[in-house]
Amino acid sequence: MTISLRAFAAAALASLLTFSSAHALTVYSSVDEENAKKLLDAFTKATGVDVQMVFLSSGPAMSRIEAEKARPQADVWFGAPSENHILAKERGLTEPYVSQNADALPDQFKDVEGYWHAIYTNPLAIGVRTDILESRGAPVPASWEDLKNPAYKGLIQMPSPQSSGTAYSLILTLVEERGEDGAFEFLKALNPNVQTYTQSGTAPSGALGVGETPLAIQFTPGFLKLADEGYPVKVVFPSEGVGYEVASMSILKGAQNPDDAKKLVDWITSADGQGALSATKTYFLPIRSDVSGGTGVPALDQIKLTPVDPKFAAENKQRLVDRWTADVLGQ
């Protein structure tokens, strides 16, 4: 009798878990696990919608979504650069929904038909240890051009385009602003001021934090985290303009919970959802110009953004990286 009762209880629990799973919003997240959990927990708290999250980086997520196309196992793809969501749309893996907040988003942060919406952006920036520059009598830069100042000789860390997509984003930004030859003339002139080309795209902010370098170039989250933790770090968005990465989300075609999926789109693009980016300390920048990225961070419409053609970026990557290796490292 005891065994039967245990078996019944186990079966009942399994049934309950299956029911719960079937009714939770299932999210494939390509946002890092820590920050995805922060945001999705905030969504659940705000809406009451339960979420089951599976972390998958961009490539594996796309492969899994394609493999499950006939019988989708998730409702939403959350995160991954917008180019991936454009590809998912082209492959018929997602379905349209124009959020009630779409009008509040700049054109580059949404699909006009509603197949994807951006959720945050990370612009390039210069991280500055103001205390170190002050001790050296050196000025705080305001532009890319300022970084050629001889006062910064051997004081800058930036990633290497040979291993870092962040550094390639910088090359694309400069090509867009100066033309290809102008971009490489600038990078050659900058080279004497570069202390180290790091392998990782986030290593420069680590060096900035420990005072190994007073000037670093990368995407903003690492700099914003240092400033928030009390380091004497200023985040400078160069006046010529900055490239940026955009993380987006899509509702998967055949989603089992389309209504809750739409709630997630509406929440993350709302002022409250965008505010959660800073409130939960993700250090991602909001895509809405009416939402602050946190203390000392300008609204997005106050930062000059330099858009880059993703097709050009993909087709020219190896060539441009090879040119950097030859012209900059090999000079």
Rank of each mutant, 00 (worst) to 15 (best):
R6P: 00
A9S: 14
A11H: 06
A11P: 03
L13H: 02
A14C: 11
S15K: 05
S15H: 10
F19E: 11
S21T: 10
A22T: 08
T26N: 10
K37T: 13
K38G: 03
L39I: 14
K45D: 05
V49E: 06
D50E: 13
Q52C: 04
M53R: 10
V54G: 07
S58E: 14
S58F: 06
S63N: 15
A67W: 08
P72M: 09
Q73N: 11
V76M: 10
F78L: 07
N84C: 05
G92M: 05
E95P: 02
V98D: 04
S99L: 09
N101W: 01
A102R: 05
P106M: 13
Q108M: 15
F109L: 09
K110H: 12
K110D: 07
A125Q: 08
I126L: 11
T130M: 00
I132K: 15
E134D: 15
S135T: 03
G137M: 05
D146L: 04
L155I: 04
I156E: 05
Q157C: 08
Q157G: 06
S160C: 05
Q162D: 15
Q162M: 11
S163F: 15
S164D: 03
S169L: 15
E177F: 00
E180N: 01
D181R: 02
L187N: 00
K188W: 02
L190A: 06
V194T: 04
S200I: 02
P204N: 09
S205Y: 14
V210E: 10
A216Q: 05
L224T: 06
L224H: 11
A227D: 02
D228F: 08
E229W: 12
E229I: 09
K234I: 01
V235A: 11
S239M: 03
S239D: 05
G243R: 11
A247W: 06
L252Y: 00
L252T: 01
L252N: 00
L252V: 01
G254N: 03
Q256M: 12
D259K: 15
W267C: 06
T269Q: 02
S270E: 00
A271P: 00
D272R: 08
A276L: 01
L277E: 04
Y283P: 01
F284H: 09
R288L: 08
A299N: 13
A299V: 13
Q302I: 09
P307T: 11
P310W: 11
F312G: 06
F312S: 12
A314N: 13
E315W: 13
N316L: 06
K317P: 02
R323Y: 05
